[in-house]
Design a protein around this nucleic acid. Structure first.
Lengths: 149, 149
DNA sequence: GTTCGTGCAAATCGTTTGCAGGAAT
DNA sequence: ATTCCTGCAAACGATTTGCACGAAC
């Protein structure tokens, strides 16, 4: 039961930050876990919870997603359309992704291009980097084979 | 007068797409050109136009920014706060940037990390890339020396 | 003269907030 | 018992839209 260990460790991260472990939080996490390879928008999370015959208010979803991000167990990505999407983080790895523009599927890339960057160029400009983003957008195998792309 | 050549070529790009060359469009472009090293939000563009003792409606600004992006002369970037920012593109170069989180200053990076990516990894997943994003966030020299970061 | 652009006001969309009652610790 | 969590409804900010008039081609 590897998966349960991973889930418990998510629960611990929440409690370590002083947040309570409520049923709603577990439900939202369930949805994120069941879609661990996908970026989900708050509205998609809402719908998937409905399909479980549960109902959680939008504001509760938003508030808890922020809490999860703050607890380091969820990643927030701002896509080009201006909407935010969320994805569970099982290990606290630093990753970059291939993101399917059709279905939101996310696949991890090995390595990080930032490590190959010429730091001298950045230092010369007097710039102090504190974060970076590298994302490849395109279409995943499944969406391509559906011939809808 | 290199700058004017560059400006005329922007005008041409607009007209080539079948859009009319209006005074408002020129004014918005002026502001983008005067801030070519910065990311500007629509509200900042609005204010800078006001300071020129001109007034352009917000909806006109939004509509024209979309048109400029569609004409390939303006770049749109979605920052983490969910707001959109815009920047003029003088040459249709493919660039990646260092972005100052305080003042919005943008400095170009040499090279592109995508070229160093192991394409075999992507092919193996059956993923078809169509675009990518590499951005370094941090603080620029000026903002650092203001000791406000 | 036709097509396209604009200002205005209202609508929309995603997201956030204040508050009063309810649940976790 | 205290602190935190939630639903609700309302507020919010950024962006978009319908429409009637005006400007570019």
């Amino acid at each position: 039961m590897f998966i349960m260990n991973k889930v418990y460790s998510l629960y611990e991260s929440i409690q370590e930050k002083g947040y309570k472990l409520t049923e709603h939080r577990k439900t939202i996490l369930d949805v994120l876990i069941e879609n661990e390879d996908y970026l989900l928008e708050p509205s998609e999370i809402f719908e998937k919870i409905l399909r479980k015959n549960k109902n959680i208010n939008f504001s509760t979803i938003y508030r808890n997603l922020e809490i999860f991000v703050h607890s380091g167990i969820v990643r927030k990505i701002n896509l080009d359309d201006g909407k935010s999407s969320y994805q569970i983080i099982f290990e606290d790895q630093h990753i970059h992704s291939m993101i399917c523009k059709k279905c939101g599927r996310v696949e991890a890339l090995k390595g990080c291009p930032f490590e190959k960057i010429d730091m001298k160029e950045i230092e010369k400009k007097g710039f102090r980097p504190d974060s970076h983003k590298f994302e490849i957008y395109g279409f995943c195998k499944e969406c391509l084979s559906n011939k809808k792309c």
